[in-house]
């Protein structure tokens, strides 16, 4: 500060270049300040009103327009997605119903086949059983006949051996009577 030369000394500045009182109140400088302030303000006003503000206003308007459009488009897409979801749900329900139907049909078919097969099997079993019964009956008959024969012969031989005589009819009648008893 002390090195500053006394070149701007006036009513408001001392010989050392320091302020005398408040520089704010120095009337000598005020016209200068006011003049340059007004020049600057006019320049700023033209920069703002001619270039900056219309441009920024346009950008902001354009942006809000874009955002509005985008929101509308998004709303559209959302609706479409909801529609697609409904259609999908519908398709799923239909598919389920159809599947149930197919399952029921298949079950019925299988049941019918099963019934037929069972009947066939039953019939076959019955036939087989009847056949077997017949065979068993035959075997039993022949067995009884054989036994009767053997019994009659044995009885005749016994009577002969014991010294008696016996006619065939009496012996067979006796054997038959015994067999029944």
């Amino acid at each position: 500060m002390a090195t500053q030369t006394n070149t701007i000394a006036g009513a408001c500045v001392d010989a050392g270049g320091s302020a005398l009182g408040m520089p704010q109140l120095c009337a000598e400088w005020m016209p200068n300040q006011i003049f340059w302030l007004i020049v600057t303000l006019i320049a700023i006003f033209f920069v703002m009103s001619r270039i900056a503000l219309p441009r920024i206003g346009a950008v902001l308007a354009e942006r809000s327009g874009t955002i509005t459009n985008d929101i509308a488009a998004a709303e559209d897409f959302k609706n479409k997605a909801a529609e697609a979801e409904t259609a999908y749900e519908q398709a799923l329900t239909d598919a389920r119903a159809k599947a149930q139907e197919i399952i029921a049909k298949a079950k019925a078919e299988i049941q019918a086949d099963l019934d037929v097969a069972l009947q066939k099997a039953d019939a076959a079993i019955a036939a087989k059983a009847a056949e077997s019964e017949a065979a068993i009956g035959e075997i039993r008959d022949s067995a009884i006949k054989n036994i009767t024969e053997v019994a009659t012969d044995t009885a005749k031989e016994l009577v002969l051996a014991l010294g008696g005589t016996a006619d065939a009819t009496t012996i067979s009648a006796a054997v038959n009577a015994r067999m029944k008893g």
């Binding site: 500060m1 002390a2 070149t7 701007i8 006036g10 408001c12 500045v13 270049g17 320091s18 302020a19 408040m22 520089p23 704010q24 120095c26 000598e28 400088w29 016209p31 200068n32 300040q33 006011i34 003049f35």
Partner: peptide, 22 residues
């Protein structure tokens, strides 16, 4: 050294002389 008000002094930017309105 305190000269807190010196920062507000108006002086010509180029050369010396009086501070006229222009």
């Amino acid at each position: 050294v305190f000269h807190p008000l010196d920062q507000f002094i108006v002086k010509p930017a180029f050369g010396d002389g009086a501070v006229n309105w222009y």
